[in-house]
């Protein structure tokens, strides 16, 4: 077990390094380096300014050398300096990651709370009316373009009903008297983006739970358990749901990984200062350091999460063992 985990960690690290190089290469394939962007913003930059700035940023070096400089800085714990915001990357990433983390975690929990019971109910009564309606909503959730949904939510709840704010993550300039007030205020801003982010995952999770549960309930041991005279509850949760959990864990682990890559469209629509938007503006503004750190963070998150889910399988299903 331990050797398995160690081997996987080493593999993961190698993949992260290779991927970071790929991302680095992709970023350089984009036309217009930072200096060119500066020139376009300012007609008075001269040819000397251009060469000076190129040298300043090390852009006159070949790709592999620049990558080497970057990765050796990273390994020293030096994440660099954001060229767009002109502050250290760590100071930029910290708050953005926290904001995104809060949004994604609440949205994930919210969708699981709704989707899992919904999926179980559907699986227990397949082809019933409840199943049909739940299915329709799940499919609609998966199929709705997220920014369209976001706009509709804003119009209804922020502009017309005025129940919730249209964007932001807290009432700006409000001095909180106590933590309870702060929580309430921030929660108010969280609801709309969370809902708009959750709609799709609710659809996905409930479909997934439904099919995993259907599969599990078809097994012989369910029949045995029922024959033994166990209560319906015990059969469903102890025998059925436990077995449906394995595939569910995979999909939850995968969606966990998006916790750090953020939800660009939702964040943009709701003016939520998360990491998705940060990545986007850093890519568009050719802010290498920020974009690369963000890439590495989100790639690592996925790889680590899939490692965790592999280990979790062993916990949930004793039949699986690692050599």
């Amino acid at each position: 077990m331990l050797t398995f985990i160690l081997r996987r960690i080493v593999q993961t690290l190698v993949v992260i390094v290779i991927l970071s190089y790929v991302c680095f290469g992709l970023m350089t394939l984009m036309p217009g380096d930072p200096v060119e962007l500066m020139i376009s913003a300012n007609p008075r930059i001269s040819a000397e300014d251009v060469t000076r700035l190129r040298e300043f940023y090390g852009l006159d070096q070949p790709l592999i050398k620049r990558y080497y400089t970057w990765i050796s800085d990273i390994s020293k714990g030096e994440l660099g300096y954001s060229r767009t915001y002109r502050i250290p990357v760590t100071e930029m990433m910290g708050p953005a990651l926290t904001a995104t983390f809060i949004l994604s975690i609440t949205s994930l929990l919210f969708s699981l709370i709704i989707a899992i019971p919904l999926g179980i109910v559907c699986a227990l009564k397949p082809n019933s009316k409840v199943d049909y309606i739940a299915n329709l909503f799940s499919f609609a959730g998966i199929s709705v373009p997220s920014f369209w949904l976001g706009i509709v939510l804003i119009i209804i709840f922020a502009v017309n009903l005025r129940w919730l704010p249209a964007g932001g993550y807290q009432t700006t300039g409000l001095a909180y008297e106590n933590i309870f007030q702060e929580l309430m205020d921030k929660a108010k801003y969280l609801i709309l983006p969370m809902v708009s982010l959750s709609v799709q995952s609710i659809g996905r999770f409930s479909r997934f739970t439904r099919s995993a549960m259907l599969e599990a309930m078809r097994n012989d041991y369910i029949r045995t358990a029922r024959a033994k005279g166990l209560s319906n509850r015990v059969v469903i949760f102890q025998h059925g749901f436990r077995n449906a959990l394995i595939p569910l864990i995979t999909i939850i682990a995968i969606s966990f990984s998006s916790i750090f890559s953020g939800a660009l469209i939702t964040e943009t629509l709701f003016a939520y200062p998360g990491v998705g938007r940060l990545i986007y503006s850093s890519i568009i503004g050719n802010d290498f350091n920020v974009a690369m750190v963000a890439f590495v963070v989100s790639v690592s998150a996925v790889l680590i999460m899939s490692l965790v889910s592999d280990i979790l399988y062993g916990v949930v299903d004793p039949r699986i063992s690692y050599k």
Partner: peptide, 20 residues
């Protein structure tokens, strides 16, 4: 395959879409 799956889709699409 795993590597491509682990790339954050949206940012990568943006980069590639902006690529020449």
């Amino acid at each position: 395959t795993d590597a491509l799956l682990s790339l954050p889709l949206m940012p990568v699409l943006i980069v590639v879409a902006a690529d020449d």
